[in-house]
Amino acid sequence: MHIEIDDLSRPEIHALLEEHLRNMREISPPESVHALDLDKLRSPDITFWTAWEGPALIGCGALKELDSLHGEIKSMRTPEALRRKGAGRAMLTHILEQARARGYERVSLETGSFDAFKPARQLYESVGFVYCGPFGTYCEDPSSMFMSLRL
């Protein structure tokens, strides 16, 4: 597996992010979909990575700088057909290493409260994330759960 910074220009990434947005819209009410589209992921405060197994895109993830000590994980996704093979854990490990290298003291994330998000929440819990209240510009939302990890 190879993880690299990505410029979001390849069609494989467009397809994976479209799958991600479509799935979030199917599961969550419109006001609770916090997934970012291509334009928002190109923001200068976001670094976006992709994971590849040979020529196959097997996952993606991003790290948004909230301030000099706090980052937010965004757009963690593995193609539905390739789940449960370690790409999500590898991407999460990579993002946390990058957050530590930047000197962040904390990394947070927003995820869904529905059962479909349970595997993601279990992955985050397995590396030490704990549940917390909203952070940044988020508000309380019954469709969202917030998690944070002290680094």
Rank of each mutant, 00 (worst) to 15 (best):
M76G: 07
Q98G: 08
S28R: 00
V107Q: 10
G54V: 12
D39I: 10
G103Q: 08
T78M: 10
E31W: 00
E97A: 14
Q98T: 10
K85P: 04
E72T: 05
E80Q: 15
P79W: 14
R42C: 14
T47V: 15
A51D: 07
I73E: 01
T50R: 06
G88V: 00
T111P: 03
E31V: 00
S68Y: 03
A51T: 08
E80M: 15
S108M: 12
S43P: 04
T93V: 12
R83L: 12
G86W: 10
R83M: 15
S108Q: 10
A99S: 12
K74C: 04
H70W: 04
T93Y: 13
R83W: 13
S108E: 09
K64N: 12
S68G: 06
G59A: 08
L92P: 02
V33L: 01
T93D: 15
Y104Q: 14
M76R: 04
S68M: 03
L66V: 11
T111Y: 06
P29H: 01
I46M: 10
T93W: 06
G86A: 12
R102K: 13
E110H: 01
R77M: 13
G59H: 08
E31N: 00
K40C: 11
R102E: 05
M91Y: 01
T78Y: 12
T50E: 11
A99L: 08
S43A: 15
R89H: 14
S43H: 15
H34K: 00
L38W: 03
G88E: 01
E105S: 13
S28D: 05
F48D: 08
R100L: 08
G61P: 04
P44G: 13
I73M: 11
L38G: 05
R77H: 12
L57Y: 06
R100E: 15
E31T: 00
P30D: 01
L38M: 11
D39W: 11
G54Y: 13
R83Q: 15
S75A: 06
R106H: 09
G88W: 01
G103R: 12
Q98P: 06
K85R: 15
